[in-house]
Structure formats: C-alpha cells, structure tokens
Simulated assay, not measured.
Amino acid sequence: MRLMTTIQQAPGWGRRRLLVALTGAALLAAALLAGLAYVLVDAVTDQAPANPVLVSSTASPASGLGWRDQVAAAPMLRVDPAAAREGTPAATPGRAIVVPPATREGPAGVPTGYPRTSAGAVGQLAAIDTTVLTGMSLERTWQVHRGWALPGASHVGQWVMTENVRAFLAAAGPAAPAGAPAAVVAIPAGGQVKGTDGPNWVVACVLLRVDATIARTASIAYGHCERMQWHEGRWQIAPGTQPATAPSTWPGTELAASAGWLAWAETGQP
C-alpha cells in the first residue's frame, strides 16, 4: 500500500535515437541492439514532464485497483538514451537489493521458487525477462507469456517483451552475415520495488545488462517494470496495463542510483 520512490517521466527512445546512442559500437551487434531496444521506450514527446512528479500515498486510496493503477502508471526518471551505454561511475558503492535465488524450474523452463516477498517478485521478473531475451524467439516468448501471465495481463501480441524480440529478429535478419549466428546474454544488474499493495501485489522493476554478439559484441542497459501478483504459490504477471517505462541506465553509475536502481545481489553472495 505504498509507493517506494519519488519518480519522474521516462524518456523515449525511437529507432533513430537508439542508433545514435549506439554509435561507436560494433556495427552488426549495434544493429541487433537497435532492433531490440527500438521498442524499449517510446520517443520523447512533449507530454513528458520536465520536473519530478511526486505521487504520495496520502492522496491515494489505501489499496485496490485505483491505487494499483496509480502506482503502475506513475512516471519514472527521465534519462537520455546515451545513459543506457555509459555514465559517470558512482563515487561510493550504492545500496543493494538482495534477491533470493530460484529453487526450481517453473512453466516454460523459467526459474522459480522465489519467496512471497517484494524481492522475490523482482527475482521472478528477472527470471522471466532473461529467459525471453536469451531464447530470442517468438515461439519461446509465447510459451513464457502463456505460463506466466494471468488473465487480464497484456496480450502476448502487445507485451513489451514480445515487441523486443520481434524488433531484434527483424534487425538480425539483414544484419547477420551468412554463418554468423546472433547470441544474446541478459544479466540482472539492478532492481527496485516501485510500489506494493499488500503482500500479494508488487510493481517490480529490473535493470538488465543485455549483450548482443555477431562476431563482435555491443552492450546496452534495459530497465523493465511489471505488475506482479502472488498466485498459486508463485509470482506471476498481474492483470492491468503495463507500468510506465523504467529508466534504462548503465549499472553502477550515479544516474542509475538517482533513478532508484539498487545493485543486484543474490542471497549468499559476498
């Protein structure tokens, strides 16, 4: 029943803005990431507020659908597209979010077994995202969506992860030279809890480092939020429209900390 952060409108990345952000990366890998990130965030528009927008729990219902919609829709930090590939390293180590490890395999081969906690919801979303991105096929994406999206969640055709995969595959076709398969690695680098409504509902956010390789490698950061709901003993993608776009900032930078990202740490790590 609380919103975790003071937040500001996210920027948009159109296809052209992303290509500019990837200037200087390996050409073929950059082309693939351009396809991947084309739909990560929309182009910056005049509707994006220039100043922080504070959402206070005192002005919202204590719980329920209206509060959940408010938490999900609240805009997040606005960052430049270049923030996804570089930034000023933080002067001091930032705080970390300690995420419990998965304990078993769930539907569609997605790791699961995360506890009924906010950190568990963040861990489950990261497992869903990394499974989709490393599989990088529409069939695999549909399998994951079918196993993890509750009725009323975004349709698989409109799910942001489906759009990511579709854009990547569209770019990979002409970009890849004959006999040079594309490879994608997605690694959780940060997380945050945007808000909660009791113990069974969380807007969880993950920050991934995504590496795409065709002969050479290009890297980009990707922030993603989802409504997550505890159902039948596991966290699943909850009903409702997709949350506002999360800021895609390079991990470990001052800007990442300003955007609310906590460094990723799993239970048992030093």
Rank of each mutant, 00 (worst) to 15 (best):
W235Q: 01
A204S: 14
G240D: 10
H224Q: 13
R227F: 04
E254K: 06
A204T: 02
W250E: 08
E232H: 12
G252V: 07
D197K: 09
A246I: 03
Q242G: 00
Q236P: 00
T213N: 03
A204M: 05
T196I: 04
D197I: 08
Y222R: 15
A218F: 11
L255V: 09
H231P: 00
G223P: 14
A212N: 03
C225K: 07
E226F: 12
P243Q: 07
A238N: 10
V206R: 13
P247W: 02
T196R: 09
D211N: 14
T249C: 15
P199F: 10
A257V: 03
L208D: 06
A259G: 14
E254F: 00
G198D: 04
G223V: 04
H224V: 08
A215R: 15
P239W: 01
E232F: 01
S219K: 13
T245M: 02
L207R: 15
L255C: 08
T196L: 04
D211M: 02
P199Q: 08
G240F: 09
Q242M: 01
L255K: 14
T253H: 14
A204K: 05
L208Y: 09
P243H: 07
Y222V: 06
Q229R: 15
L207Y: 13
P239E: 00
R234E: 00
A256L: 10
L208A: 04
C205G: 15
I237L: 15
T196N: 01
A246R: 11
W230K: 08
S248K: 08
V206T: 15
G260L: 02
T253Q: 14
A221H: 12
Q229G: 06
R227S: 07
R234V: 01
A256D: 11
V203W: 04
C225N: 11
T213E: 02
R227G: 05
A256W: 13
W235P: 04
A238C: 07
A221F: 09
I214R: 05
W201E: 01
E232G: 09
A257M: 07
H224T: 07
P199I: 04
P251T: 09
E226W: 14
A215L: 15
L207E: 14
T241W: 08
P239A: 04
L208M: 12
W250C: 04
I220L: 11
V203P: 00
E254Q: 14
I220D: 05
R209F: 00
L255H: 12
Q229N: 08
R216H: 15
T245V: 02
E254P: 01
A212G: 11
R227H: 07
T249D: 13
Y222S: 08
A244F: 06
C205A: 15
I220Y: 11
A212C: 03
W235I: 03
I237D: 05
T217N: 05
W250A: 12
T249P: 13
V202F: 08
R209G: 06
